[in-house]
Design a protein around this nucleic acid. Structure first.
Lengths: 200, 200
DNA sequence: TGAGTAAGCTTACCAGGTAAATGTAACACG
DNA sequence: CGTGTTACATTTACCTGGTAAGCTTACTCA
């Protein structure tokens, strides 16, 4: 039912994102203007903003997936919340998922993000969205009886700490396989720590 | 040694901040432009930005103090880090310090912040500054042997959670004395939880 | 056929923020 | 005393992200 017609919105949107991503990776996020992206995509500036809320979303448009993944992991869990999230993180890692930070071809993306204050800020804001989402999920969950807000904050903080460290090390050129292993350990450890303090 | 001369920078800076604060509290942060602030302070727009890096700093110019407080609490501590920070938080609370969020006359300020996405974002960014500062402090501290980055993240997350909850309740009109008591309890509790998981 | 709607366009504008060149009061010092 | 330096401030001009409003095109479906 969406995008009827060949001029179609979804295609335009995808083209804009592609062109923008290429430009950002090549020259850096802050060095490329929206006007340039629009021109390169053969589209007007206003059209860009009708497909993406913020400039940052041109590059980071797969973040919402992560929220969906977390939500579903919590809902379909059989054991504890923290355990379910640890499982999710490990699975993403094994699959080399983009969101795990240890995927195959994401290094240029990581570098671009790391060099842009605006993108870092956006990622941090996303962390808060995730936190709020998780807190809401836990609060509405009859199987969870602890402090939902505190638990969400701690889990997100712990995961973020590990993820950031891994990214940093990857950008410093550390070996990928080695890094994945160390990431796994640190992930397990961090979630263990949190598990001990989050009473369910 | 600074500000010689009567036209002096410090005075101008203070005047700008005062005027700006009054305008923001009265009409809301996002409804007041820098140009207005400049005009009201009898100064040019550029001058405003020569005294304050960002618009948000016009209102939140006392945040750096908090970092100093934390740093010194960590350095002069006798026992554990978490314990020292809990003490600091409780002391600020007792003194009704602005930074505690439960001061006497800060409600208008809190309301203004809560209603402005830009200010909320700024506070969050500040949280990260605090986290980085604390992590650096712990990493350089021979008395602390745990994971400095993780510990900093968890402490900041826990404190923020409590502070945000308190502010929210205060803005909902909850009784001040009652709130202070509950804040104290929740603070103690949150730090206890963190203390258990941060091995020093 | 005609209404509705999604997608896009142009134009115009706003606000935060930066750059550069200039002016001016106060001080320091030979 | 005059000269230069420094800190503060000014004006002007500009860039960039983002929004508003209103018009056009093209497709869908009743």
């Amino acid at each position: 039912m969406p995008n009827r017609g060949d001029r179609g919105g979804a295609r335009t949107r995808a083209r804009i994102a592609e062109v923008a991503t290429a430009l950002f990776l090549e020259r850096g996020f802050d060095e490329v203007t929206i006007a340039e992206v629009a021109a390169a995509a053969g589209v007007s500036k206003v059209t860009v903003f009708s497909h993406f809320e913020r400039k940052e979303d041109l590059l980071l448009d797969r973040l919402p997936e992560a929220i969906e993944l977390v939500r579903s992991a919590v809902r379909t869990r059989t054991g504890g919340v923290v355990d379910a999230l640890r499982q999710l993180a490990l699975t993403l890692l094994d699959e080399g998922h983009v969101l795990s930070g240890v995927g195959g071809d994401v290094e240029p993306l990581m570098r671009t993000v790391a060099e842009s204050p605006a993108l870092i800020a956006r990622l941090r804001a996303f962390g808060y969205e995730m936190e709020a989402e998780l807190a809401a999920e836990l609060a509405a969950d009859t199987r969870f009886s602890g402090d939902a807000v505190l638990a969400a904050a701690l889990v997100v903080a712990a995961y973020r700490t590990v993820a950031v460290a891994t990214v940093r090390r990857r950008l410093e050129g550390e070996d990928l396989a080695e890094l994945a292993e160390s990431h796994r350990e640190r992930l397990t450890q961090a979630f263990d720590v949190v598990e001990r303090m989050v009473s369910e």
